[in-house]
Write a protein that binds this DNA or RNA. Structure first.
Length: 583
RNA sequence: GCUGGUGUAGUUCAGUUGGUAGAACGCUUCACUUGUAAUGAAGAUGUCGUGGGUCCGAGUCCUACCUCCAGCACCA
């Protein structure tokens, strides 16, 4: 999908269209004031103060119509440069513009762009004339906080997109519609993967049998991977005392995002939002020698986070989730190697799943924000450099994000784009010098001295919930054979004559551990075939007289129109191979 | 949490100015006995999100709460 921000012309076009929209809004709401109207990946938006007016669908159409009119009129877009003083004078009745202008340094040149009766403060650049902004669509509208601060008033924001031709626009809009079709919430319902119920609560998904199969396969898969890498898996409780989180420091930094505490007798408990404190105690259960390190404690751990009601979304953002979590306890010298192994594991797993659209984000602290981040510049610089080194060594592409670190340390996050909505973090690996200190963790080094280990927090799938959500959208509901809830559908051509043979094959496959269905309903073959395809079952087996006589198997693979007839052995080999190749 | 929208059968959705609910698919039954994307006929669908209120009468109007949706903010 085209990224408007990365293409110079599209970027100019969309930004100019934002101005065009502002002009149209000004015509309809003469008192409207404008904040900012940037270009984004999907097009543009403009934040506006309409003096208490909240927009409706009809208003959008009205604005759209006015925009067409102005565009047709074809006024040229003219740039004008003025001084800060002139700008302050020109926009003296507009507090939003004053706010923007005051951020300019003294003597800096400020530019304005005019088109007909509309002038806006703007850095530019713009297209030549409003005539070029002809093929646009206003997509959606909503509120947004002035300057992104919830304490401020809510401005009206309209999103739109503009393209050079009507064909490109309609193709773009079609792509947007297509994305909605693979929304995991839609597919999850269609394929009965998960459900929600208001009696259980928002953000508390119930995994249905089909979804549970996928999750179990994911658990088995990553468990085997981790086992081979020397991880030790544990089970720990989903609750902890408030004191546990006071010890870890989470209570001060994270309380707002936890479910409220429960009073039981004289103790206060909370549902755990993360597993690090529990795993710290697992480490602390006995003394450790440097020879024992690294120690890798893994767990498929259920956590609870009180996510804002407006944030919950399908399986992607939930209040009850299961992390594919692990904590690696390492010496300072082992940081690099262990971090590297984690990054390799991430790459390995993504390859197995054929995931290609992701970005590595190196999340760093904001040096000026001493409140959000644990204050120890030396520790931070050291940690951040180590992570950067590994990424450079492995030659992976990444971008750096200031202010995205955890309060205890920098991290590497893997960001992916869902079908609908903003990017989310899938995998994460976080470096932590703080927690081991808070829990007073030690190991004995080769000189017999006590040392504090370093902890790497890491989650490859992130949570099973979010990973499944992503996977559903990635494969568009067409799962590879090894993950598919139903793997094989066996259809006898005629129940009267072929059901017995079909049952024999069904039993054979089920005994071998395949998830297989026998469709023995009294329906036409074409009817059953249709359902098999609609249900996206990877392999459909058709058994009739021909197959019975030659003791063979005919099958059709999802996505193909072709029927292949082979011996039983060949068929079993085919299945085995596909499972091994994970396709 | 904020701004706005939304909620009707298992699913997708109709339901005019208030007069106790409809379609399609699915489901059930019967007939048909079938070789690769829909055989035909008949039948049953339901506390119209929940609680209050207005009214002779509420799916429809008012109100509170909840779910879900789009953004915003949040995301250790």
């Amino acid at each position: 999908m085209e990224n408007m921000k990365e293409n110079e012309y599209l970027s100019k076009l969309n930004h100019s269209c934002a101005h065009l929209m502002a002009q149209a809004v000004k015509h309809i709401y003469p008192n409207a004031l404008f904040w900012v109207g940037p270009v984004i990946e999907e097009g543009f938006y403009y934040d506006m103060d309409l003096g208490g007016v909240t927009l409706t669908e009809e208003d959008l159409e009205k604005i759209s119509k006015e925009m067409k009119k102005i565009s047709k009129d074809g006024k040229r877009i003219i740039r004008e440069e003025i001084s800060k003083e002139e700008a302050l004078e020109k926009f003296k009745n507009d507090p939003y513009k004053i706010d923007l202008i005051e951020n300019f340094k003294e003597g800096e040149v400020i530019s304005c762009y005019s088109q007909g009766d509309f002038t806006d403060l703007c850095r530019g650049p713009h297209v030549e004339s409003v005539k070029e902004c002809k093929h646009f669509k206003l997509l959606k509208f909503s509120g947004s906080y002035y300057k992104g601060d919830p304490k401020n008033k809510v401005l009206q924001r309209i999103y739109g997109v503009c393209l050079p031709s009507e064909e490109e626009l309609s193709q773009y809009l079609e792509e947007l519609e297509d994305r909605k079709l693979r929304d995991h919430r839609k597919i999850g319902k269609e394929q009965e993967l998960f459900m929600n119920h208001e009696l259980v609560g928002a953000g508390m998904p119930l995994w249905l049998p089909n979804g549970a199969i996928i999750r179990k396969e994911l658990e088995n898969y990553i468990y085997e991977k981790e086992k081979k890498l020397g991880y030790l898996h544990v089970y720990t409780p989903c609750v902890g005392t408030v004191n546990l989180y006071k010890t870890s420091g989470h209570w001060d930094h994270y309380k707002e995002n936890m479910f409220p505490k429960m009073q039981v007798d004289d103790e206060e408990f909370v549902l755990r939002p993360m597993n690090c404190p529990h795993h710290m105690l697992v480490y602390k259960n006995k003394p450790h020698s440097y020879r024992d390190l690294p120690i890798r404690i893994g767990e498929f751990a259920t956590d609870f986070r009180y996510e804002a009601s407006g944030a919950v979304k399908g399986l992607e953002r939930v209040r009850c989730m299961c992390q594919n979590d692990a904590h690696l306890f390492v010496t300072k010298e082992q940081i690099k190697e262990e971090f590297q192994k984690v990054v390799r594991l991430i790459l390995d797993v993504y390859q197995d799943f054929g995931i290609k659209n992701y970005k590595f984000r190196l999340s760093l602290r904001d040096k000026n924000d001493k409140e959000k981040y644990f204050d120890d510049d030396e520790m931070w610089d050291n940690a951040e450099n180590k992570l950067r080194e590994v990424l450079n060594d492995l030659k992976v592409d990444y971008f750096e994000a200031i202010g995205e670190a955890a309060f205890y340390g920098p991290k590497l996050d893997v960001e992916v784009k869902p079908a609908v909505g903003p990017d989310v973090t899938l995998s994460t690996c976080q470096l932590d010098f703080l927690l081991p200190r808070r829990f007073d963790l030690t190991y004995i080094d080769s000189n017999g001295e006590k040392q504090v280990p370093v902890v790497l927090h890491r989650a490859i799938f992130g949570t099973f919930d979010r990973f499944t959500a992503f996977l559903i959208e990635e494969v568009k509901g067409i799962f590879p054979l090894w993950l598919s809830p139903t793997q094989i559908n066996v259809i006898p051509v005629n129940n009267e004559y072929h059901l017995e043979y079909a049952k024999e094959i069904f039993d054979l496959l089920q005994d071998l551990g395949y998830r297989v269905k026998l469709d023995s309903r009294e329906e036409k073959l074409s009817y059953k075939m249709r359902e098999s395809v609609i249900q996206k079952i990877p392999v459909t087996v058709i058994l009739g007289q021909k197959e019975m006589d030659s003791s063979s198997i005919s099958y059709r693979v999802y996505g193909s129109e072709e029927t292949i007839t082979v011996s039983k052995e060949e068929f079993l080999n085919y299945l085995k191979e596909r499972i091994e190749k994970k396709n």
